[in-house]
Design a protein around this nucleic acid. Structure first.
Lengths: 222, 222
DNA sequence: TTATTTTGTTAGTATCGTCTAACTTATTAC
DNA sequence: GTAATAAGTTAGACGATACTAACAAAATAA
């Protein structure tokens, strides 16, 4: 059996390794706000359990089993977020901390029921893909809005990472997933973009915001 | 702050003391399947925190604060059970273990939302009253079916205690809350009762079953 | 390339929540 | 009313999850 705490380490490691395939003790330490020696000994424990590849002074990796387990926790997290938004009426900026707790509930039937009631959704309210019941996750081919160029018309597909403040900001600008964004202008000095979407014309977005918005180049159906 | 574990002790103590106002270390130990010395030291801790009245070799009591806290946990438990049955389609025999976990979630807005979506229910799916947001709980004046006499017509109001097996049995006999039960016969030898309700005529219920069914004498609206 | 800084590791400590063994107090049975 | 039993308590241990202090290795800068 795997503890609540261990689950949190696995999940963070999953997220950190999803980019380069590995992560450092320091990364995890900062992410969880837990001191390095604690992380270090936990990594040894998870290695003992066959979930993590640990070698002294080397970056950490997940084993296949560890990755699958982590994906299943993330599945529970994202299904919960979707449920909270779609069925309970929460805003997309309110659901993260509740889902952080519910993701540890041990009751497969509970999450299966959510999945069913939601009609087997593929993404969470922030556009992140929901792993399937085997821990497999669909890879998107989205790009950062900040990597697009003037004249592009793209579809807003996901917010990543999605902090509460950013989500509130997006809501205040009526920026929601699925919208077509037309890039009107790019300010070379600070990287800010001027875009049009929905009923909004020439809204200015800072480069920091644009970095966190994922879009698809070919207007996709949602 | 109060831990998940401490919450469980409080809740059990609340239930045990609801009858006589006090409970013993041994009661709690059996209820939680945790050894007496462990319970003993936990009781001292909860006493330190002002939630329990502890005196050596004396029965335990809750302080007002402890009782309120416990009631609020029970509120979360019962709201959750009601939500699982009413909004997610679970059977009344499936919800206890899921609610046992969800009751520890720290997110007031989550439970407020449930309450709202359910239309501020007064009882859980087994007929037990849901404490209000201040920890106050309505006292019912139900009696055990086993204390009624032949000829009585009563309304089935609650199952208490409600084990999974009992709930499954009741479901298999189409016995659900709100039904009018007519007591046809009482077997003096073993205390079993023959009752009629809904479309069922002369169903036999063992005294053990009758002990766990609470009814109101005056046919109440639900 | 050496010195400095950052990262990782080891060792030792603390708290929480559990246990067993041994002892004390209270209750029950005769 | 004493002996036997049950309940409660104390003491000591252990695993999980955190910490700090001190040291070692790796990465970076001079």
């Amino acid at each position: 059996m795997i503890s609540h705490t261990e689950e949190n380490y696995l999940k963070v490691l999953y997220n950190l390794t999803s980019l380069k395939g590995e992560a450092t003790v320091n990364d995890i330490s900062k992410q969880l706000d837990i001191k390095m020696p604690t992380v270090n000994s936990m990594m040894k424990r998870l290695a003992e359990k066959g979930l993590v590849v640990y070698e002294s002074y080397k970056p950490l990796k997940l084993t296949d089993e560890g990755r699958k387990l982590a994906a299943l926790i993330i599945r529970k997290h994202r299904l919960t977020e979707m449920y909270l938004v779609e069925k309970m009426g929460f805003g997309w900026e309110q659901v993260h901390s509740i889902a952080e707790q519910i993701e540890h509930i041990q009751a497969p039937e509970f999450f299966e029921k959510m999945d069913e009631l939601l009609g087997f959704p593929k993404v969470d309210p922030h556009g992140s893909p929901i792993p399937d019941a085997n821990g497999n996750i669909a890879s998107d081919n989205y790009v950062k809005l900040s990597d697009c160029k003037v004249g592009d018309t793209v579809t807003f597909m996901a917010v990543q990472p999605s902090s509460e403040d950013l989500l509130k900001f997006l809501t205040s600008r009526d920026l929601s997933l699925g919208l077509e964004l037309k890039i009107k202008q790019l300010e070379p000095f600070d990287g800010s973009m001027t875009i049009s979407y929905g009923k909004k014309e020439n809204e200015m977005l800072s480069s920091k915001v644009c970095d966190n918005l994922l879009v698809s180049k070919k207007s996709k159906k949602k």
